[in-house]
Structures are given as structure tokens and as C-alpha cells.
Simulated assay, not measured.
Amino acid sequence: MTHSALLRHDETLFRDPEVFEFTFVPEQVHYRDAQVRELASLLRPALRGGSAENAVLRGPPGTGKTTTVRRIFAEVAEVTHRVVPIRVNCQHDRTALAVFRCIFEQIFGYAPPSRHLDGIKQAIAARLRDEDARLVVCLDDANYLIPAGTYNTLLYQILRLYEKWDVRKPGVVAVASDLSLNLYAEADERVRSVFHPTEVFFPPYGKAEVRGILADRVRQGLYPGVVPKSLLDRIAGIAAGEQDVRVGIDLVRLAVLRAEGDGRRQVTAADVTAAARAVVAPVLRARAAGLSESERALLSRIAEQSLAGSDMTGGAVFEEVKDYLPVGRTAYHEHLKRLAEAGIVDLVPGTGRGRGREIRLRYDPAEVAAACAGQEDLRILPAARNFDR
């Protein structure tokens, strides 16, 4: 039976739309075998009746940290009730009360009736004692706790829960996407006495890895033939350039929605282009928003220099901006490093003798300038589908 080129009103291109949500947990975490093994080994003592080892998961956004935790925690929950794995989103829950309420709700399946922290802890401890269970808490995006002033307090209260409430020693998995932060160094002396984490690093995915992940999502979530291979290659290239696989997942979702909205059975290049404008711009704004004022000022000047077609070697840019920005050469290079870590510029070694690094924007310079100029109005943005996670 042949299909019409157009969709009927009751037809869809999605076999399973949940596959393209960021909360989706794939059956297999691709290209993260080493990280999965490392985290599993740290949890293994708890499965054998001991206590889980602590861990810090570090890596740029969109490198599989949260997905790995979700997958391993789901497997642990399936095989035993003696380990209670809890993931807390610290973007949303940053106070001790909010975090322990989240732990309570995941253990009991309903919100705690008490709003008193000690009462909530006591109920959690009673359940853990009754089941002789070990608590393992993932503080996802733990870097958000530092400016909130609750990072050390929460680590201390979770890790020393056993002292007051007579439960097995809990374990903590702290996750951070800010590579400039050392979560162990941020811990104070009283926390370091019980927090000795193993660091597990998540490097950015390469283009082939991004394509493999996206191909698996397309296979699970769409009907055959919806996204041509050439366009999947293009989407993978965009996502790899952003060093964030979630950009690719959202690009596929939005491009398919656009095709479906037009009643077409296949995504076109125009769909991908429109989706890229919708996805990449919020990512750039979110990354620019995460910079300091002086870093953003330098980025704005770099965008202006790029638009003007000026020499973009590091030394030449410094000579152009030093009269406008109150930074010395050392601070300038630190700012450049931060812009590179934020995924906004690439610092490419020069090819000629004596030439320093060339500064290359990874976005259209006009869009970079607009993102810098508009930050005062864009500080309170919708989560841009949570791209900063």
C-alpha cells in the first residue's frame, strides 16, 4: 500500500515522542562505557552491604552525565531495594529543606506532610532503617549550590546523616558542567573529612558519536524515512559544533514537528535550518548569560572585530581592545580561556612563524553581538529546554 505524500490530520511522524525529551533514559548509554563502569564500581560496595563511594562527575553540558546517572540509578532500583538512589536537580532545589523534601518524595511517593527539616530527615531515616537500605544521592548541577551558599551545608548533612539518625552511611554523586569549578576544592574542612570523591570525566562527543546517538533516537522515536541520512549528518555536525548532543536531539524534534505541521512525511533542509535558528540562538544566549560582565564585554569586542574583518590573532585583538577594557594581558588571556570553555570561541594555533593563536567565533558574529547586548533583558529566560544542564 502506497502512502500519500501528505499526512492525514490524524497521522504523526513520531513513533514515540518521549524519545526526544531530555528526561528520556535510553536502554543503552552510548560511548560512555568507561564512565558507566567507573560509576558502577563506586556503587558496588553498597550493593554488597557496605557504603557507596563518593563521586564527582565533570564535563561540559550535553556530554551524558545526567543520562548516565539516570540509567545506572534505574538499574540499581530494578535489582535491589537495599540501595535507594535519589537524583536531585539542584537548579530547582538548592536549600537543605528543598533537597530533603525531594529525597522524601522520591522515597515515599508523595510530598512530606511536615515542613520541618528534622521531621523530614527523621522520616527518611526511619524508612532506611526499616529496609536496612543505603541512601545514594546525586546532586545534579551541584555547582548551583555554591552561589546559593548551601553546597557545604548539604554535603555535610547528607554525608553525616548516619551520625544522628542511625542509618547506613550515605553516598553522594555530585555533578557539575562548569569546568572551572573543582567541587572537592569548594568543600570546606569539615566536609572534606567525609567527602573523598573519585572524579569521573565526561569529554565532549565527536561528530560520529553524536550521529550514532541521534540515529538511535531517530530509529526509536520516528517512523522510517522521516529524516534523510544527509540531513541527519547535518544535524550531527551542528550539535557536535555546539559540543552538546541535546542540541541535536532538539533539532531533530523541532524539524520533525515543522514537517508534521506542514503535513509532510519527510524533513527537508529548510526544516533543519528553521529548527537550528530556534535552538542555537537560545543556547548562545544562555552561554553568554553565564559569563561575567568583563568576559561578556570582551566577547562583544571580539564580535565587533570579527564583523569588521580585523586581524583575529590573540595579540592583535588585545591591542584593539585594551583601550576599551580595563584588563591587563594576563586577565585578557584568562577571559579568552573562559570564552573557549563556554563553547563560544575556538583558540586555534597560528600557522605562520611567531603568530599566536587565532580567535574564531563558533557563532555568527552578529548573533554574538546581539546576545551580549541583550543580556540585561535576557537574564530571566525560559530554560531554553534546559540547555545549561
Rank of each mutant, 00 (worst) to 15 (best):
M1Y: 05
M1G: 11
H3M: 11
E11K: 02
E11Y: 02
R15C: 04
R15M: 03
D16M: 03
F22G: 09
V25C: 07
P26D: 08
P26A: 08
E27P: 04
E27L: 05
H30D: 08
Y31G: 08
R32A: 12
R32I: 13
D33L: 11
A34I: 09
A34K: 14
R37F: 10
L43E: 13
L57E: 09
L57F: 12
P60S: 10
T63C: 14
T68Y: 12
V69Y: 07
R71V: 00
R71K: 12
I72S: 14
F73P: 12
V79Y: 09
V83P: 08
I86L: 09
H92D: 09
T95G: 00
T95R: 01
A98W: 02
C102T: 15
Q106K: 13
A111N: 04
R115C: 01
H116K: 13
D118C: 00
G119A: 15
Q122R: 12
A125G: 07
A125P: 03
A126M: 10
L128P: 08
L128T: 11
D130R: 15
E131A: 15
R134D: 06
V136Q: 10
D140H: 10
A142H: 13
T150G: 03
N152A: 04
Q157L: 05
I158E: 05
I158C: 07
R160F: 05
K164I: 02
W165E: 09
D166V: 02
R168P: 00
K169Y: 06
K169G: 04
P170T: 09
G171H: 13
V173S: 06
L179H: 00
L181H: 06
R192W: 05
V194I: 07
Y205R: 02
Y205W: 02
G206W: 02
K207Q: 13
E209N: 03
I213Y: 08
D216M: 12
V218D: 00
G221V: 01
K229I: 03
L232V: 12
D233N: 15
R234W: 05
A236E: 06
A236Y: 04
A240F: 05
E242S: 13
D244I: 05
L251T: 07
A255I: 03
D262T: 05
R265F: 09
T268H: 10
T268K: 08
A269V: 07
A270N: 11
V272E: 03
A274R: 14
A275M: 12
A276R: 14
R277T: 14
A286W: 06
R287H: 11
R287F: 08
L291Q: 14
S294D: 14
R296Y: 06
L298R: 10
R301N: 04
S306M: 06
L307G: 11
D311V: 10
A316G: 06
A316L: 01
V317S: 02
E320P: 01
Y324W: 04
V327N: 00
R329G: 08
T330M: 11
H333A: 12
R338E: 14
E341V: 03
D346A: 14
G350D: 08
G354M: 12
G356E: 12
R357F: 13
L378Q: 05
N386V: 02
